[in-house]
Design a protein around this nucleic acid. Structure first.
Lengths: 166, 166
DNA sequence: TATTGTTATACTCTATAACTATA
DNA sequence: TATAGTTATAGAGTATAACAATA
């Protein structure tokens, strides 16, 4: 792909491809483990883990969607699956009757606790083991900066909800 | 997600999450651009670009699949779409009649050439701009090492083709 | 028997738009 | 009128297993 992507130096190209491939391999491996251990997709694990860390284990649908998913209906779909399995509950918010509060159940917390050790082991084995402490610090710094930059540079996520035609 | 992922230090956690989020944001943005400019998914772009750089613009299906896709039928499906659009051709290999040689057509090369400037611009703007030359060198080194490690550490991709039941 | 690739099928996931209800 | 969420629907993509053809 080097010729096809001229316009980037070999070093830029290498960093770009390595980043994409490493992230893909990591997610593929980790996803496989989560499905095998807990019948969870990576997204479902992220949802449960996010709730687990939220105060009271509860978040509004909108706040939960943030960063995890690109469409509202996508989250509704996933929440429906988790709800059906008794891993979360949904109830209208007392504050704002339009909102829905999502809460992890004990079963949900238990499942996260069950798959977590293997998940962490995967991340350590695949991603962290071949790094030195210095590598880790640099990666943390650079990728943290890039992440802030990307969040601030609305790619397409900032796309507002499409208006009705009438 | 910090509590839920204890077992990793904050720095390890930060690097892991930053990596996944950066790669996801980048792919989401880039995929959107490729679809808008050339009606191509990221995977389809990767297939065309890989072929474009191959000697003679040709590769066997099996060699093309390597790294891009996780199942054979997945590549057949994508190749079918690209073939239908006249971006590639498929023909049995003269050497080994079992193999299929995939070749980019002129139209395929033209399309890659058309979407490439925008693609490169996206990568530069989102990923590379906030990096110093030193950052780039380090990232290249570390991620390159991690990639080799991951490729050598069969996660689940090494899963051989399942044997028939009889 | 092993390898290459395709196909049939079933399933998961995603996104758009229309819709309801509340603010 | 704007916001929160659901639903209907349709489409894209994926994976497994069975299959045919060649080595």
């Amino acid at each position: 792909m080097s010729d096809a992507t001229s316009g980037l130096t070999p070093e830029e190209l290498g960093a770009y491809f390595a980043l994409v491939e490493v992230a893909n391999l990591l997610q593929y491996a980790v996803d496989g483990h989560l499905r095998a251990e807990g019948d969870l997709s990576y997204l479902q694990f992220q949802i449960l883990a996010t709730l687990t860390d939220a105060p009271g284990g509860r978040l509004r649908m909108t706040d939960l969607a943030d960063g995890l998913v690109h469409s509202r209906s996508g989250l509704t779909y996933q929440a429906g699956l988790l709800d059906k399995r008794g891993l979360i509950t949904r109830a209208p918010s007392p504050d704002d009757e339009r909102s829905v509060m999502v809460t992890v159940t004990d079963a949900g917390r238990a499942l996260v606790g069950r798959v977590l050790p293997g998940h962490v082991a995967d991340v350590r084995r695949l991603l962290l083991d071949p790094m030195t402490a210095g590598d880790l610090a640099t990666l943390n710094d650079v990728l943290g900066r890039v992440r802030r930059h990307m969040r601030a540079t609305p790619p397409r996520s900032a796309r507002p909800r499409v208006k009705r035609k009438n």
